[in-house]
């Protein structure tokens, strides 16, 4: 029986249904594709509505996937099998390529697990390894010794200018008058007299620093720096008013060698506004600028 129905399937079959059946059949093993296409085109003709035919074609697509998977494991009769002599049974094989869907899924899951494991190693485990060894300390720079106020040197000469009292009062209105006279009399100048010495005045100045409620360095320790084991001291120049509030944006005057740590130090310095201890002069808080060292040390992490 070799006749084929040449008009490529039954009449009144939409292009979508015909296309779907054609491609479904060709997804099946090669030895079965022509048989299945002819069989499905014949069977779809018995359907009445177009929607039913389309559903049949979609089902054929699913069937081709199932048949393709099973054909790799079980023998499938060839397209020409017949009743005679029990039919011809051939083994069909399906080329799965390098990766089947199952293998790709397996590799994907394994990859996700590997990525998760790596993430845990590089973040969580390091944090656990650096358990706190001591309480956190704020390492600010030592107090700057009070600066000595420059003392004015005594003048070598003392000039005294004596203005004699005018004989007559100057009228409030600037009206020229011949009656009013004024004279400036130069008093004696004694260049050889010893100069008057102004006693030097020493102001006791104490630089400010971290005050009450100063933020914890650990809260501003950058996480990447923790993971990478970065430590160091960032020196920040802060300008603080008498109430311990920042009057200017802090700046780095000496870096730690790590840009991340320096940024963390700047954030800490900004967040600490209002918690600085103001510098004092003679015991009185004054506005001032001073360097503040912020130490990031892993052993200080809790």
């Amino acid at each position: 029986m070799s006749q084929r129905y040449e008009p490529s399937g039954p009449p009144n079959l939409s292009r979508a249904t015909r296309w779907l059946i054609h491609h479904s059949a060709h997804r099946a093993p090669e030895s079965l594709s022509s048989r299945l296409e002819e069989e499905w085109l014949a069977d779809v003709a018995s359907r009445s509505s177009e929607l039913s035919k389309l559903r049949f074609a979609v089902g054929c697509y699913w069937a081709s996937l199932v048949i393709g998977n099973e054909s790799a494991r079980i023998p499938v009769p060839a397209a020409s099998s017949a009743l005679s002599a029990g039919g011809i049974v051939t083994l069909t094989e399906r080329n799965f390529g390098y990766l089947s869907l199952r293998s790709a899924t397996l590799f994907l899951i394994a990859g996700l697990h590997a990525a998760l494991f790596y993430g845990m190693i590089t973040t969580l485990s390091h944090t656990r390894a650096t358990t706190p060894q001591s309480n956190l300390e704020n390492h600010a720079l030592k107090e700057v010794p009070p600066e000595r106020v420059p003392v004015l040197q005594p003048l070598s000469r003392d000039w005294t200018i004596a203005v004699p009292k005018p004989d007559a009062e100057i009228p409030p209105l600037l009206i020229p008058s011949d009656n009013v006279t004024s004279a400036i009399e130069e008093k004696s100048i004694e260049p050889d007299s010893p100069p008057a010495v102004i006693p030097p005045r020493v102001i006791a100045r104490i630089a400010g620093g971290p005050g009450a409620g100063f933020p914890d360095t650990a809260d501003f320790y950058p996480s990447p720096s923790i993971r990478m084991g970065e430590q160091g001291i960032s020196t920040v120049q802060v300008c603080v008013d008498s109430h311990g509030r920042l009057t200017a944006d802090p700046t780095i005057v000496r870096g730690s060698g790590s840009a991340r740590l320096d940024q963390g130090a700047l954030k800490l310095a900004r967040a600490a506004s209002g918690h600085y201890r103001a510098s004092t002069e003679d015991g009185q808080p004054v506005d001032s600028c001073y360097p503040l060292g912020i130490r990031f040390q892993l052993s200080n992490l809790r």
Partner: peptide, 23 residues
């Protein structure tokens, strides 16, 4: 449905329970 039916027919045919031929 066709998606289930045809794999069953082919499975039973390959097992020797069915035979098929063209009309």
């Amino acid at each position: 449905a066709s998606g289930t039916l045809y794999p069953i027919l082919l499975r039973l045919e390959s097992a020797g329970w069915f035979v098929s031929q063209w009309e």
